[in-house]
Simulated assay, not measured.
Amino acid sequence: MNPTSPTRHPSWPRSRFAWLLIAALALPACAQQVAPGASTEADQPADVLVPPTSASDFTASQLDEVLAGSWRSPANRARDVYRHPKATLQFFGVRPDQTVIEITPGGGWYAEILAPLLNDNGHYIAAVAAPRGDTEAQRDDSALHRLFAADPAHYGNAKIVEFDPRAPVFGPPGSADMVLTFRNAHNWVGAGTAPAMFQAFFAVLRPGGVLGVADHRAAPGATLEAVKGSGYLPTDYVVKLAVDAGFVLDASSEINANPLDTHELAIGSPDASIF
């Protein structure tokens, strides 16, 4: 679907979509089978970080250091056992030398991890909805501004950019290696802005870049109309949003699946959901 996105050369790798919690894997026959976030040698810019060990080992070590960081709030660290941030970010293929855009990070649960991880060799960009003049509810992003301003040693290179949810632009075309979003897609579906958001994700990613999405998964067989407003989404609907925008489904995971989830109401109740 995405007729407004930049034309991709046929020989360039397709931008990929990794959906957390779906037990499925679909790669196009013409695509080279690489992990989400990984790049072939031809994709790499000349100035990429060359770690002393393998990229995956280096990233794992860096993630361990960041997750143990004293700057993380105790309340946020206490949720690691439920949100599995290391496994989640490794699944998406995050590396400390990438440009990563996190969409509507709220108070910064993942920003506390991603921004310090990317601070020295990569770029962390938090994309937040621009304030509107009508009565539409807005997220409070002041906590994120305070977080970055109070600790330049760990957040000094982090950026916050604003976007219009109805006509979103997250940066110059092809400028990001990865776009990540956690528990936000159901809000865009409810607001009717989801197709525009996914098209904008595709536009800002470089060829071969990765979109990583995590959200509350509806019970098998549930229709969109039946669960709309609950905070849950049907798997096939989210995949279609991404595929229609130009992505290829690259991988999926059950990392954060919760067998105790009742699928009744995810909004405002993270412990009862997949997170």
Rank of each mutant, 00 (worst) to 15 (best):
T181G: 09
L147M: 15
Y232E: 01
A129I: 12
A222Y: 07
E225F: 09
F163Q: 06
G212E: 01
A245H: 05
V179D: 01
G229P: 01
A196W: 07
D140T: 05
G209H: 00
D215W: 02
R166K: 12
L224V: 13
V189I: 12
V238K: 01
A158S: 05
R146Q: 14
R217W: 09
P172L: 13
D236H: 14
H145D: 11
L205G: 00
V227G: 04
V210P: 00
L180W: 01
S175D: 01
L180G: 06
T223W: 08
V227C: 03
D164T: 10
G229D: 03
A137Y: 12
N157T: 11
W188V: 05
R166D: 10
G174T: 07
F202G: 09
D236W: 08
K228W: 09
I160W: 03
V243G: 03
V169C: 10
V128D: 06
P207I: 13
A242I: 01
G190C: 03
H186A: 00
K159R: 15
H154A: 06
Y155H: 05
N184W: 02
D140S: 08
S142T: 15
L147T: 01
V239Y: 04
V239G: 10
V189P: 00
R132Q: 13
L233I: 04
H216W: 11
H216E: 10
L224H: 11
L180K: 04
P207N: 14
R132P: 02
G190T: 02
G133R: 15
P195L: 12
G208H: 02
L147F: 09
T235E: 12
G246W: 01
F198N: 07
V213Y: 04
S142V: 12
A137G: 07
G192Y: 08
P173M: 05
D244K: 11
L211A: 00
R139C: 11
P165T: 06
I160E: 04
D141I: 15
E162L: 14
